[in-house]
């Protein structure tokens, strides 16, 4: 009876983070890009919890809590920005929104 190796969790975290990076890179819908960012945040949370269990240290759990708060705030503001852009431009495709691109 050995339990689950910690490295399995880290590999899963790496896979999910890579999927999030791929999503941000190849998708052009701003909402899906946002969802990929959420995927990356969750992958990092999994890493934090795995190391928190390994080190028997409560700081990892506190940090995950803070990441969740920041993610909630980020989603609220980000979706408000997307709605505002949609009302202005009638699109959320990032190819069509290049106001900051020179």
């Amino acid at each position: 009876m050995q339990g689950i190796p910690i490295s399995h969790f880290l590999v899963l975290s790496a896979i999910l983070f890579s999927l999030g990076v791929i999503g941000v890179t190849i998708r052009r819908n701003a909402i899906v890009i946002f969802m990929s960012i959420e995927l990356m945040l969750n992958a990092v949370n999994l890493s934090f919890l795995a190391f928190s269990n390994y080190l028997n240290n409560v700081e990892g759990q506190i940090f995950v809590f803070m990441v969740m708060v920041v993610a909630a705030a980020e989603v609220a503001v980000g979706l408000a920005i997307i709605v505002a852009i949609f009302r202005l431009r009638e699109t959320v495709h990032v190819d069509d929104i290049k106001l900051l691109k020179w």
Binding site: G3, P5, S7, S52, Y54
Partner: peptide
Amino acid sequence: QEVYVKNTDVG
């Protein structure tokens, strides 16, 4: 060196 999930009360 492989380590395993411990049964702690940290969570």
